[in-house]
Design a protein around this nucleic acid. Structure first.
Lengths: 134, 134
DNA sequence: GTGCAGTTACTCGGATACCTCCTGTCCGAGTCGTCAAGG
DNA sequence: CCTTGACGACTCGGACAGGAGGTATCCGAGTAACTGCAC
């Protein structure tokens, strides 16, 4: 089990968009160059973020992607859920949620991780230090 | 991202082995029947647990798998690590561990989940209730 | 100078291959218990 | 009756297909800015 690379790209891109001040649309080309990813692939990932309501897209010349909501509210979990989906990490023997004790333990553990990701806002990390793309 | 089915099978099998008292080897056929899995596939999973030192295998007639260490010490994390590997869930841009703040946050979140899985011992759950295989 | 239509260049987004890893299966090597024969 | 050897059945474990999902790419549809021309 591993987080997909798409999640990594999404987090770094969002971190970049949140860290810089101007709210003008950023082209995919620019965002992709910073991470050495194919622009078309990154576009595919950003589409998920658009559908999740985190960013919005602008077509045409000088278009690109731009933050949609308040930048202070965006947490790590929002982005991860947008890319990876909101399904539980652990699927037991056919939705026997209440019965299976193992499932309960796994759910608690997952809950712990999600709490941390929900409480950590992107902007807090962005304010600490933003050097390049890292 | 999801936990593999193998992890699910491994957890249930270990739970069963820990819950029952006798320490005589259990055949794969018996263990597989309880979960509706192919015995050969389950054998493949149990091999990982053997290599991790959690259980040991006995060949020949009346052979099978048997717990190796103290049953009180086995935690959820031990089993998950044995099946899924010990690698980090999140791999950032090429092992730039110290630099990337995103990686740091993800690592903390993962740490939170692992702590819960490490502190929860299998036997504690087994003692609560053990009804069938659930 | 102003308005407008055409052009152009750039963007997004879905549809399409490729590849890795998980899932599941098959068969051979090895081991232990059983049984029978011989002493 | 005891020892011993072979046999057989059962087991584990690695090697072999099939499929799902992630990764990466290409191309078309659409849009906004720019340009040039007519008024």
């Amino acid at each position: 089990m591993k987080y997909s690379k798409a999640t990594n790209y999404a987090l770094h891109t969002m971190m970049y968009m949140i860290a810089i001040e101007p709210n003008s649309p950023l082209g995919v080309q620019q965002l992709a160059d910073k991470q050495g990813v194919s622009p078309t692939y990154l576009s595919k990932i950003l589409t998920k973020l658009v559908k999740a309501g985190l960013i919005e897209s602008a077509s045409g010349a000088h278009g690109g992607y731009r933050l949609k909501g308040k930048r202070e509210d965006i947490s790590f979990l929002d982005i991860i859920h947008a890319v990876e989906g909101t399904a539980s990490l652990f699927e037991c023997c056919g939705s026997e949620d209440s019965k299976c004790l193992i499932h309960g333990v796994m759910l608690e553990a997952e809950e712990g991780m999600e709490q941390h990701l929900k409480n950590t806002k992107m902007i807090d990390v962005a304010r600490k230090r933003f050097s390049g793309i890292s």
